[in-house]
């Protein structure tokens, strides 16, 4: 039996999660619901729950504030948020799970499914590290880190170390500084969505590049770019105009 708590300042949200948890009552027991950060802290210092449903905005404080105040995090967290986009990005970068309010039943079920395969402590701490790092550097996108799930586990990478991403059927190869290469079982579209706002540009069907790593653009029908690591990346004809616009915008 897993022990769960809900940290949320809005009663209807608490009610919603409570209702959704009903069908899992043989697996998960709702131990406690709390509506402030301080009360949640008090509870968490004494008890050891397995799952915490954590709202991002709790009155004047945030769920992140709560996590920072804890000496150790030894539980699964499912963030819940209405629309705080910065938080959503932070979750994505850290590979953490989150639910958007109002919470859809299907999404909820999926999240519970994941919890069944318990995350290792080291992985969790890595995720937390990434989250706090990114929240701290919230205004400087260059120093953000991204948690990449690889075969060996989570790898944390500074996004400013990524030179380019190249898709290869169902994988994406990330080429990093110092000749490092990471292969991830994600789509290029996933990385495009994640990195587009941080100076990355989809030059081609199978290429996403870090514009700040462009050494030189060589004219042509679409042309190509030479990257700082010496590799060259094709620019699709249809992307050329937009590419040049973006490149000169740096």
């Amino acid at each position: 039996m897993l022990k769960a708590i809900i940290v949320d300042d809005e009663q209807h949200c608490v009610d919603r999660i409570t209702k959704l948890l009903k069908k899992y009552n043989s697996l998960i027991q709702l131990d406690y619901t709390v509506n402030t950060v301080s009360k949640a802290k008090q509870y968490l210092e004494k008890e050891e729950p397995d799952i915490v449903f954590l709202d991002v905005q709790i009155y004047e404080e945030t769920g992140f504030d709560l996590l920072r105040q804890l000496s150790k995090i030894n539980f699964e967290i499912i963030f819940t948020t209405a629309y705080e986009s910065y938080a959503v990005e932070a979750f994505k970068f850290s590979a953490l799970d989150y639910l958007l309010k109002p919470i859809d039943e299907e999404d909820f079920d999926r999240a519970i499914e994941k919890i069944k395969n318990k995350t290792s402590l080291t992985e969790l701490s890595k995720k937390m590290e990434t989250l706090f790092h990114n929240l701290k550097e919230v205004n400087t996108s260059n120093t953000k880190k991204i948690a990449l799930p690889t075969l060996e586990g989570l790898t944390l990478v500074y996004i400013h170390d990524i030179i380019r991403c190249q898709s290869d059927t169902s994988y994406v190869h990330l080429y990093l500084k110092r000749n490092k290469k990471i292969t991830v079982a994600k789509t290029l579209k996933y990385f495009e969505g994640l990195l587009e706002a941080h100076g990355f540009f989809r030059t081609h069907h199978s290429h996403l590049i870090n514009l700040s790593m462009v050494e030189k653009y060589v004219k042509g029908k679409g042309g190509y770019v030479l990257m700082q690591d010496g590799s060259s990346v094709e620019i699709a004809v249809r992307r050329k105009e937009q590419f040049l616009k973006q490149l000169s915008g740096i």
């Binding site: 629309y83 958007l100 109002p102 919470i103 859809d104 039943e105």
Partner: peptide, 12 residues
């Protein structure tokens, strides 16, 4: 209510 939640997802 279920319907509303689905709808909010769509609207998002």
């Amino acid at each position: 209510n279920e319907y509303l939640i689905k709808f909010s997802k769509l609207i998002r």
